[in-house]
Nucleic acid binder design. Structure first.
Lengths: 351, 351
DNA sequence: ATGAAAGCGCTAACAT
DNA sequence: ATGTTAGCGCTTTCAT
């Protein structure tokens, strides 16, 4: 591996000058600069990041802490962040707190060891947030989907409340009066906000409400299946189910099928997130689309902004990302495909 | 951020001794070791990885290059690797060659900049592999799912051929004689091997064969849908479809539904990978399970083995991971659930 | 505009 | 068993 000294010798200059062209210093004569660039190319030289990091205290890597990096929803957000920061020469290190017995330890060690220049914390579970507020003042931090007031750092959240309220109102528009809600994991920020949107829509529209309309899952398909089973075995049955995320909505659809109930005729089912499965499941899922990829860009942008600003003018910022309802079939709206070709939907012939 | 000098002063020893306890040197008196450990804890000290890396040429991070980090299949493998290496204090940096216009550049710079101690290259597309054989001798490399002979590095592949042959034979056992195959992306190693397994099973069992039974997709659901549409509109229709991966198989199932064909009665459909969707799609997908998570462990283990061996005894190794067929409903076998409870499956009542 | 040299935080001989 | 010291490859004053 060639180093800066090799380049300097080859170009017949000092290492300081080489360093200057590496760092785009303006005060290098154009001619020597060309010479050095040529040497760099010929030797195929790349500056050693460890040495650079040791000096500059910049490692050009970001740490991301996510509950689970392999779920589609999180994976997409990570991809968005990665894609954005890579353009700026940054890499990301992803830690799944899910896998770790001690997520805080990972976080702190990542930080203290000087491995990362900034952190993105996806912390939808409310209780452990306060743990994190410690020792984070050294680097820029972006909190994602967190209810807690964060000190001196940016918080990026999605407009759960509005999305949930709108999709519930869409169900009401369809004429549904007994609308169930399946909660996500306990203490989950997103789930709670979505519930608030649901309950407000229900109340404001004067709908029947009962605690029996609610059920508690944990964001997995299996839990959605189980919750929907309970809900749908009640008398009277809910006419619609709003699950706090798509995975549970999909589980709920399976449950309806198990009970020989047609979706959406016998029971409408809607979700939240718009994961890729949502569009091809049968019936296609009506849901609230979270622009996960774009979210990544916003996160990356925010980190860089903090990185390039003096500590003095760090401001607490809160960014709310707007969401969009995606109307498909599971709410009772017929899809284009169906209207054009009535015999395409098997489910409509069953029941 | 405290450094080794702070610790040394606090403990009243030299930095060398502190360094020794950091690196578990045996020759430190138990008593001083305790003293130092105490100081470390009190100061909340973590060794700076850049300084360590600069000296030891070990950064404790691995680079993973994947075509696409957010597809479920790849994400699971990454998770497996991450989880394993984290236990050994390693982090991973994931680069999606998909996102990059110039994947080679990323790879080389990751390597040359001293950012990673080893690399995992997922390179299922055959043509670009030769590009990579350059300049990789400096660190341990594991190639994943690659057909190319790799020099001086480990290659880990899955037993595509056997899995494909067995699942095809399962279809034959069901009495199918016109079995279609949907190819994955062109030049994809896995797809080609799976095709070989398919074609051998077809030939060895004296089945009818025609080029018309083959169709070409690119591993996406959409391509599976399209391919199956073409296949199923032929006369005579294939009685079974083997798609080179689950996503395409799922697309194919949707296509069958569009054509008002019952799966598996009118056409059996099987896939490959066993992604999570496979088990809850309707009908549940019969497929070949790839132990993605375990695969990650094997990859991590191999890298560490190379890391801890002298360069002289680096041997070229080829590891083949065995696969397992998962029989569910889409092949024509009825699921347990159905047998126990005949009215649970909607599809069996349709058509 | 360029070079010399100090030093970032650590490890690893080499001393003692 | 512990301390001293020379780098690892780079950036950055400070000279010139």
């Amino acid at each position: 591996m060639p180093n800066i000294k090799d380049v300097a010798e080859k170009a017949g200059v000092s290492i300081a000058t080489v360093s200057r062209v590496i760092n785009d210093s303006p005060k290098v004569k154009e001619k020597t600069k060309k010479l050095i660039l040529k040497a760099i190319k010929e030797l195929n030289f790349t500056p050693n990041v460890n040495a650079q990091g040791l000096q500059k205290k910049r490692t050009k890597t970001l740490g991301l802490i996510f509950p689970d990096a392999s779920s589609y929803y999180f994976a997409e957000i990570i991809r968005g962040i990665n894609s954005y920061v890579r353009k700026h020469g940054y890499q990301v290190i992803v830690a799944s707190s899910h896998d770790e017995e001690d997520e805080v330890r990972t976080l702190v060690s990542l930080l203290q060891s000087g491995r990362v220049d900034g952190m993105v914390l996806m912390m939808p579970s409310i209780q452990n947030v306060n743990v994190f507020n410690l020792s984070l003042n050294s680097v820029p931090v972006v909190y994602l989907c967190t209810g807690i007031q964060t000190q001196n750092s940016t918080r990026i959240i999605i407009d759960n409340y509005k999305g949930a309220k709108e999709i519930t109102e869409h169900l009401i528009w369809h004429g549904h009066s007994r609308i169930s809600f399946i909660h996500g994991a306990p203490n989950n920020y997103d789930s709670q906000k979505r519930y608030l949107g649901y309950i407000d829509a229900v109340h404001e529209n004067g709908l029947e409400y009962s605690i029996l309309l609610e059920s508690h899952g944990n964001f997995t398909e299996a839990s959605g299946f189980k919750s929907a089973m309970e809900l749908l075995n009640q008398e009277p049955r809910p006419t619609a189910i709003f699950a706090a995320n798509d995975a549970m909505a999909i589980g709920a659809i399976e449950a309806a099928k198990r009970l020989s109930l047609n979706v959406p005729k016998d029971v409408a089912i809607v979700g939240f997130d718009d994961i890729s499965t949502a569009q091809y499941i049968n019936p296609a899922l009506t849901t609230v689309s979270v622009p996960v990829y774009k979210m990544g860009q916003i996160v990356g942008g925010s980190i860089f902004k903090q990185l390039n600003s003096k500590e003095s003018d760090q401001v607490e910022e809160k960014i709310v990302i707007p969401l969009q309802i995606i109307i498909r079939e599971s709410c009772g709206c017929s899809s284009q495909g169906i209207e054009k070709n009535p015999n395409t939907q098997m489910d409509s012939e069953v029941s």
